[in-house]
């Protein structure tokens, strides 16, 4: 059973990632902090031992997502709608924020790069962006992502490969620009 001191330690270690993930899912800060509080409180009540959990961070993400789905459900039931957790999970937005801090690159170049990365991300669906976020930033496996998003592993792979094909169709081959570069170098 985790003592309150242990809980504080675990909280400190994972709260930032949980906080960011929930904000990306489109919840406001107060709701997010309440949801995280509830997750850790429940851990204590249910006497969950962290020594037996293979990947604590994944466990916490899952608990947090379940809690957020419940919160959605409560508010939707309040409005008189009833939805399954899958549908709620499906309908949650997922927004990413692109920031670059690089002293070596000039401001206007940074703006252009940011624009390009945003283009890439904006052409994805919310669920695809969520996969990108989980895979690229949190380094989760397909199996973990599938469980978190309540979809099958296959569906998860398909979602990601679809996002790839979409991206490929978008991007112009870089080579087209290169002859111009070589020319430019030669002139100088």
């Amino acid at each position: 059973m985790p003592t309150s001191k242990n809980i504080a330690l675990i909280y400190n270690r994972y709260v930032d990632d949980m906080y960011a993930y929930a904000l990306h899912l489109g919840f406001n800060e107060d709701t997010v902090m309440d949801a995280i509080h509830d997750v850790f409180y429940k851990l204590h009540i249910n006497r969950v031992s962290f020594e037996n959990i293979y990947n604590p961070k994944f466990y916490l993400f899952r608990a947090l997502k379940n809690r957020l789905i419940d919160i959605c459900k409560e508010s939707k039931e309040y409005l008189g709608l009833t939805e399954t957790p899958e549908k709620i999970s499906e309908s949650m937005p997922f927004r990413l924020q692109v920031t670059i801090e690089d002293e070596m690159i000039r401001e206007e170049d940074l703006a252009e790069i940011r624009q390009k990365v945003e283009n890439v991300l904006n052409n994805l669906t919310d669920r695809q962006r969520e996969i990108v976020y989980l895979k690229y930033i949190n380094e989760y496996t397909y199996e973990e992502i599938a469980e978190l998003m309540q979809i099958s592993v296959l569906a998860c792979r398909n979602l990601l490969s679809k996002s790839m094909t979409k991206l490929k169709a978008l991007s112009k081959p870089i080579l087209q620009d290169f002859p111009f570069i070589f020319l430019f170098i030669h002139i100088c």
Binding site: I105, D109, E112, I113, K116, V117, N119, V120, V132, K135, Y136, L160, S163, M164, L167, K168, L170, S171, K172, P173, I174, D177, I181
Partner: peptide
């Protein structure tokens, strides 16, 4: 040029 190339961005992201 690489950083401004969407195919490069895509490759780096996934």
């Amino acid at each position: 040029r690489f950083l401004k190339d969407e195919k490069f961005i895509e490759w780096k992201l996934f």
